[in-house]
Amino acid sequence: MDLPQKRKNPEPKPKPGGGLAESDGMVLDAIKSKKEMAILKRDLKEETKLPESIFNKCLKNLQALGLIKEVPHVQFKTKKYYIAAEFNPSEEITGGSWYSKGELDQDFINGLKDLCLRIIRKLKVATADGVMDIIKNKGLLKTDCTTQQISEILRYMVLDNKIIEVKSTGLGEYHSIPIGNLCYSLETGAMMSIPCGVCPKIRECTPGGLISPTTCVYYTKWLDF
């Protein structure tokens, strides 16, 4: 006669966080769920609903284990945000590449402005891409930099009246820059002040076309001047 099989005890479910105390795992999972956006300490406490003493102990334990880290928020400097160790905080948290540890990296910005100014002075006329190419090809920066950052720096310099922004006419000093592309220079010489440089219809302007240099009243006045 077959004997009845002894009923097996159900296997215990793994604790959240993989072997951590249940409360630690609960806090870790809540932080991980926010990924690169991080989570405000107050919101984390409300989400986990843990008593104050246990909650603070969990944060301390997880930080000691290197599983989470506190990150400064560029807009809310006095508030504490936490993020899982495997994520990097988003630009919304850090402020992007212009910030370091939650503070505006003024030294980096000023250094980049000076570098762009030297490049434009040497080239006479340059686009953001052209400035970026020289920086990369010559290894002029020890840190990573993008064309978008260079464009932002150049716009700041225009607002500071350090350089001027014009559109390429494809003529003279602009010969290597496609017509209509934004470019930057230090001075407003004769070629720089040509009305084509700021004309919104420059891409449509062609000899014999509906819009052309021969029919442009602004270009004619500039020639007469």
Results as ranks from 00 to 15, higher is better:
residue 159 L to W: 02
residue 188 T to S: 15
residue 215 T to S: 03
residue 99 Y to C: 12
residue 178 P to E: 09
residue 218 Y to G: 11
residue 210 L to F: 10
residue 77 K to Q: 15
residue 138 K to V: 10
residue 192 M to C: 06
residue 115 L to F: 12
residue 190 A to T: 06
residue 165 E to V: 10
residue 118 R to K: 07
residue 161 N to R: 01
residue 194 I to S: 11
residue 102 G to C: 12
residue 81 Y to A: 02
residue 110 N to W: 10
residue 157 M to P: 13
residue 161 N to M: 04
residue 149 Q to P: 10
residue 218 Y to Q: 14
residue 133 D to R: 00
residue 134 I to L: 05
residue 199 C to L: 06
residue 141 L to Y: 08
residue 163 I to E: 11
residue 187 E to Y: 02
residue 202 I to H: 14
residue 140 L to M: 06
residue 92 E to K: 11
residue 148 Q to F: 13
residue 203 R to F: 07
residue 143 T to E: 15
residue 85 A to I: 00
residue 92 E to M: 13
residue 84 A to D: 08
residue 171 L to F: 13
residue 105 D to W: 05
residue 204 E to Q: 06
residue 119 I to D: 04
residue 150 I to H: 12
residue 108 F to A: 02
residue 185 S to M: 13
residue 207 P to S: 10
residue 189 G to H: 05
residue 158 V to G: 04
residue 81 Y to H: 06
residue 201 K to W: 10
residue 154 L to V: 02
residue 147 T to L: 14
residue 103 E to L: 05
residue 86 E to D: 09
residue 209 G to F: 14
residue 164 I to W: 09
residue 166 V to K: 07
residue 189 G to D: 00
residue 213 P to E: 12
residue 180 G to D: 14
residue 175 H to V: 06
residue 172 G to Q: 12
residue 95 G to L: 12
residue 200 P to A: 03
residue 99 Y to E: 15
residue 135 I to L: 08
residue 170 G to I: 03
residue 202 I to S: 07
residue 184 Y to I: 06
residue 150 I to V: 14
residue 100 S to K: 05
residue 126 A to T: 02
residue 111 G to A: 10
residue 78 T to W: 12
residue 83 I to F: 01
residue 187 E to G: 01
residue 173 E to K: 07
residue 108 F to C: 06
residue 191 M to G: 06
residue 145 C to M: 05
residue 193 S to H: 15
residue 162 K to R: 06
residue 105 D to M: 12
residue 174 Y to H: 00
residue 117 L to T: 06
residue 138 K to S: 02
residue 139 G to K: 00
residue 169 T to W: 14
residue 191 M to D: 09
residue 97 S to Q: 04
residue 208 G to L: 02
residue 153 I to F: 04
residue 164 I to M: 03
residue 87 F to V: 08
residue 105 D to T: 01
residue 114 D to E: 11
residue 174 Y to V: 01
residue 166 V to P: 02
residue 93 I to M: 08
residue 112 L to M: 03
residue 150 I to S: 08
residue 118 R to E: 13
